[in-house]
């Protein structure tokens, strides 16, 4: 926990700075959307044709911070200033996607035999590397620097809902060195301070810290769903607390957004919650729907997550990270969000 590197501090400063900008533009976005009339225009007084053309050209160029999402499996971006405005679609198809810095990770649509592929793309959407994988795409994360990529696949059982249980595999790629860890389960585990081995171990939902080495994830075994803190270089992880699934570290590194099984029983669904790492106190967020997603942080005060309607349409919602307020629709018809701050 100690020994923050200089890189980490710089990275955290940069994140805090962009978060402040982000917060401001989000507020502008809501002003635009809340006003009745042509939401497509950024200025209500301008002549319609030219105003919308200008806004659209801006969107197409990708001016300003963007939110990267999947629109029914198509890699897309919307403006963070106007998430309900024009959306730019690409030709890339993913079952799950995540972008950070200059890295876009995409888990390709799985085929009937369970084969998928992790594609690492640059912002020009050119593929830098692809890794064949087996399993059903579930979670995907890129560290804030763009260097580290982690994924979770369902290997068997395919979902929590399957009667006979399930199994997952979480892997990590260091895009700088090319080091590939096929399964975090191979790391040396410490549970409550003691070395631990178990055949029923599953790991899912990796989230990286700012130093591109330490990470958090969920490790399940013996009915527990532990929050673990891992060390990529040392190939170890140790338990931090119990009852935490799909952790997502806040930009300032102090809190974990996660899904908490209601009454400790995943069959009853999950409550989106935030854990303070220093005090170990947990607060339930104001979203009352069951959230089965690895949330993202839009800034240090707001988390976003996907919810699926009963007809299979997905929406991205946002809710304050301190349990106050209420959820708000952020991007309709979208899932798998990530903040793509480079604006490239």
């Amino acid at each position: 926990m100690s020994g923050q590197s200089g890189l980490s501090l710089r990275a955290r400063g940069a994140i805090a700075g962009s978060a402040a900008v982000l917060l401001a533009v989000v507020a502008v976005g809501y002003t635009v959307r809340a006003r009745p009339g042509p939401a497509v225009t950024t200025s209500g007084t301008a002549e319609a044709g030219t105003a919308s053309s200008t806004a659209e050209a801006g969107a197409a160029r990708g001016d300003g911070p963007r939110l990267r999402v999947l629109s029914n499996g198509v890699l897309s971006t919307v403006s963070l200033q106007d998430p309900g405005g024009p959306r730019t679609l690409t030709s890339q198809r993913c079952d799950r996607a995540f972008a950070a810095a200059d890295t876009i990770a995409c888990l390709r649509p799985v085929n009937p035999l369970g084969a998928t592929q992790l594609a690492i793309l640059g912002h020009d959407l050119r593929e830098r590397r692809s890794i064949p994988l087996t399993g059903f795409p579930n979670r995907l994360r890129v560290s804030a620097s763009g260097r580290m990529v982690a994924w979770t696949l369902f290997i068997d059982g395919h979902s929590y809902a399957s009667g006979g249980g399930f199994s997952t595999r979480a892997g990590i790629l260091d895009t700088r060195t090319g080091t590939l860890v096929d399964s975090v389960e191979t790391f040396a585990a410490t549970v409550d301070g003691r070395p631990y081995r178990a055949a029923d171990m599953n790991v899912w939902g990796v989230t990286f810290t700012g130093d591109d080495n330490r990470f958090y994830a969920t490790m399940s075994s013996g009915g527990h769903r532990y929050l673990v803190e891992g060390d990529f270089a040392a190939r170890t992880f140790r338990t931090v607390t119990d009852g935490v699934e799909c952790p997502s570290l806040s930009p300032d590194g102090t809190r974990i957004a996660f899904k908490a099984a209601i009454g400790g029983d995943p069959a009853r669904g999950w409550r989106l919650s935030v854990l303070d790492l220093a005090t170990k106190k947990t607060v339930a967020l104001a979203e009352s729907h069951s959230v089965d997603d690895q949330a993202i942080w839009l800034d240090d005060r707001t988390v976003a997550y996907g919810l699926q309607r009963s007809d299979g349409t997905n929406d991205v919602w946002a809710v304050p990270a301190d349990g106050t307020g209420g959820p708000r629709l952020f991007v309709s018809g979208a899932n798998s969000p990530s903040v793509d701050g480079s604006g490239a």
């Binding site: 042509p38 497509v40 309900g84 309709s332």
Partner: peptide, 15 residues
């Protein structure tokens, strides 16, 4: 749809 912005979607736009 708009042929000058061939990859842009306007599904959530007000116009």
């Amino acid at each position: 749809t708009d042929n000058s912005l061939a990859t842009t979607n306007y599904g959530t736009s007000g116009q």
